[in-house]
Design a protein around this nucleic acid. Structure first.
Lengths: 216, 216
DNA sequence: ATGTTCTTGTGAACTCTTTCACAAGCCTCG
DNA sequence: CGAGGCTTGTGAAAGAGTTCACAAGAACAT
């Protein structure tokens, strides 16, 4: 990689730009300016240009960016020009909710397998996705060539499963368990935690709204 | 507010500290050092102390922090010493998954109502939470004294509902719709987007892992 | 051709966040 | 009581991220 070193915030904004570019694309819009992208993502035009300039010069001065080209570039940067094969570990409420989540395939993530420890839940399909017993975790992850795992298990078992998943050659984990995972540094990990976000809202509200109106 | 101006990252870390303090509390641990809190949250001891110093001096030199006291202080800072009354708008897969999510009441957020536009889903209880028709949104939000709404609807209707919710006097929105919401500046808003997090993972993986191992 | 208008790409300035490093304070033990 | 071992709280330094401001191009009209 010869790119400078990209911050998390930049990556998040790239996702937002990509969303907009896809929407513009279906509306057959050809060109878009940094200012327009900025308005749709809650940031500034300068920020958009700075973000993109980390990876090259994709625009035309005086014109803006060609929607289809920029979409392709950002897809390449984010690594979503390929389709990712994803598995969900834990077929409880959150797990099964994800299995039917339309947005994921539309954005390049195909859920192809689910796992659960409870025999009552395994051996059938949910939203067209087979649910396997967790004993088969390693074999199926490899057989199905899973790149990313979404962990939606109780916190108590999340740690152990994360290790097994990492050892099975999976490249990334998205965890819904608030608990810290002790994983190999070789695997990328991110967290999503509803309660943590609610606490953040609670803080904003409680600290008198003088703090600021929200998150971009 | 006489506090300096608190960054989003600080607030997120406070939530992580709070989680640990609660765990320590149930294990009857009395004292904890900034170093221990840091290890459990993937940050540094200096960062923990800096975060806390925004709000006062809660520790004892040479000893560390009294677990119960610090827990109370952070609960106060985040505004979760009170219990929040929360409603879920959209009783689809994600919405109903949240209704049964044990972690929320345990962390101070009580889901007391849900809404849906589909009559097939309304008029019954899911996980003990009544599901109302969306026509009753404003009346019930006020009657039930809802402070925070979780939006779990299709993106197409999220914007309109956000406005209605804001107009009904709700103080915060947590949105699962990726689309930008045009709301009154008076209401606090945060987003959660699974696909966006997956794109972030995809970027980390694709950019050769040289980028960094994950997110703290 | 030349002028006008528009928008990008980018160094430089600025602001925000994190890390460093150490004095001040607390507790224990001899 | 004084020394020694720890840990906090915090200015100052370093490091990141964002905003500013403007030269360099591109298209188009005259």
């Amino acid at each position: 990689m010869n790119v400078p070193k990209i911050s998390d915030s930049t990556v998040r904004r790239l996702s937002l730009y990509l969303n907009q570019l896809r929407a513009l694309s279906t509306r057959d819009v050809r060109l878009v300016s940094s200012r327009e992208l900025a308005e749709g993502s809650g940031t500034t035009a300068a920020q958009v240009r700075k973000d993109l300039s980390n990876f090259g010069s994709f625009g035309k001065r005086g014109q803006g960016y060609r929607v289809d080209e920029l979409r392709g570039r950002i897809e390449g940067i984010l690594g979503v020009e390929r389709r990712w094969r994803v598995a969900v570990v834990g077929a409880g409420r959150i797990g099964t909710a994800l299995l039917g989540y339309r947005d994921l395939p539309a954005r390049g993530f195909e859920i192809v397998a689910a796992f659960d420890a409870d025999p009552a839940r395994t051996g059938r399909e949910v939203s067209g996705v087979p649910v396997y017993p967790v004993d088969e975790l390693e074999t199926r992850l490899r057989a199905d060539d899973i790149g990313i795992v979404i962990l939606a298990t109780p916190p108590s078992v999340a740690g152990e499963l994360a290790e097994r998943v990492a050892a099975a050659g999976v490249e990334g984990i998205l965890s819904f368990a608030a608990s810290k995972l002790e994983t190999d540094a070789s695997i990328a990990v991110r967290w999503m935690d509803v309660a943590l976000e609610l606490e953040g809202l609670s803080f904003l509200i409680t600290s008198g709204d003088s703090q600021n109106g929200g998150t971009a």
